[in-house]
Write a protein that binds this DNA or RNA. Structure first.
Lengths: 244, 244
DNA sequence: ATCGATCTGTTTACGGCGTAAACATGGGGG
DNA sequence: CCCCCATGTTTACGCCGTAAACAGATCGAT
């Protein structure tokens, strides 16, 4: 088996102090994110990840209890910086807070389209952890902030439910659409090595004249503007609920 | 290996005319849905499915080109009856049409919580097929119906985007929540056979006082009512867009 | 009735996966 | 100096999807 160090210059000197020559949980998680960005979540493999890091797969198990744990760590890392980046910003109003939070989550989704379905659809650890806000501290901050701005408990949970539902729907569709237009063929990195799905490799549009008419219109990607509009609508609705 | 026929009475006589003794694509898809309902989509295995049907795994490949094709067929079957069940009903208004469609899709989600994430998150075949409306004829019908009721093209695509986003967000969260409350432990049927994810098998709520306060409130499952309210809100918004 | 073709399901096999367990090894504190 | 522990490797097991060769039943044409 060919040597595959993590970089070409990577000697084996015990010195080279800050060098990333040693494995660590954080390094592994980082590499996992990078792998997911390149090959999707399904394409993340313990063996492959080990290879990326110049190490046998089993070495990873010193830092991670298994693939599940790794995926959970990926989610945690992606969501980790969010709260920090929100502190003391436009959070003078709860509207500003929700705006900033929504944009940060959307940034995660667009930066890591392969990872977002993970955040969105993995089994939540508890009923009160609603994707894509799969982080205790994030949810805690969310509830705290809205309470601090004078919303009642009922209004807070209403906002929480509406906000998560909005994020989940729009962002999942956005990353799906981006994926679809970038790779119109069935993604080649399926599990196993199957071939074209069925008798019709290409969709048959001969009977769907209306879809044909709307084809270009539907294929347009106005995700950014739509996100803003939908977010504004949501905030308006919440304000309305609040005032009555 | 013990014989596992598809039913206790299933002999091997060449007669017994109408008996489901023979494999068929539809029978396989049906069994796949049942398996997904019981063990989730990840738990669906060609070998296991064969066993359910009293047959070797490879027998399935006469009717299905592979696992991917089977999953796509599952989606198609679940979405298949929808359009039929909508014809000539409350579709005198486009609002009634959207209401009926939304409820039918929600019924699919609640009847097959393990299958819905499939419908929701599998790579769409085209940018104009937005989950969970992953069916050509359904989308065609959607566009046609709204056009027939006098909406402009722009209004139709706006409604399409808003409607799909709404369904995706609310229903995905609903099935996730149901799954979470029914099995608070990490689902036991992971791939492989890993053990408890990390150092904390149970979430540590010691620092999240607000979440603790909201715990019961957030765990309440008001999905049905919330769905109705959100759907009504969406329709109101669409009507507003229409009138101006 | 016979015979081939065709249709259906089985057997066998391959490569890849996650991961348990035993093993190697090298650097640091007694 | 030596042992021990942390780190990474080897080996192995049981799963998975599926390609390919095979076997047997069924059935139409003769």
């Amino acid at each position: 088996m060919v040597e595959r160090g993590r970089d070409v210059t990577g000697r084996h000197h015990p010195d080279a102090p800050g060098s990333a020559d040693r494995l660590s949980r954080d390094l592994i998680v980082q590499a996992a994110i990078s792998s997911i960005d390149r090959r999707g979540a399904q394409g993340l493999t313990m063996r492959g990840l080990g290879q990326d890091l110049g190490v046998e797969a089993m070495a990873l198990y010193r830092y991670v209890t298994g693939r599940e744990d790794l995926l959970e760590a990926v989610i945690a890392k992606l969501l980790g910086g969010v709260r920090q980046s929100l502190d003391h910003r436009l959070t003078e109003s709860w509207q500003g807070y929700l705006q900033a939070l929504a944009h940060r989550i959307r940034a995660i989704a667009t930066d890591h389209p392969g990872a977002f379905p993970l955040i969105a659809t993995r089994h939540p650890a508890a009923p009160w952890l609603r994707p894509p806000l799969r982080s205790l501290e994030l949810v805690e901050d969310f509830l705290d902030t809205l309470l601090r701005h004078g919303l009642t408990e009922g209004q807070v949970v209403g906002a929480y439910r509406g906000f998560t539902s909005f994020l989940l729907g729009t962002l999942l569709l956005e990353v799906a659409q981006r994926g679809a237009e970038s790779s119109p063929i069935e993604e080649p990195l399926d599990e196993g090595h199957a071939q074209i799905p069925n008798d019709d490799g290409r969709l048959d549009l001969s009977e769907t004249t209306t879809i044909l008419r709307f084809r270009d219109l539907l294929s347009e990607d106005r995700s950014a503007e739509e996100f803003e509009v939908a977010l504004e609508t949501l905030l308006d609705r919440l304000e309305l609920d609040l005032s009555q």
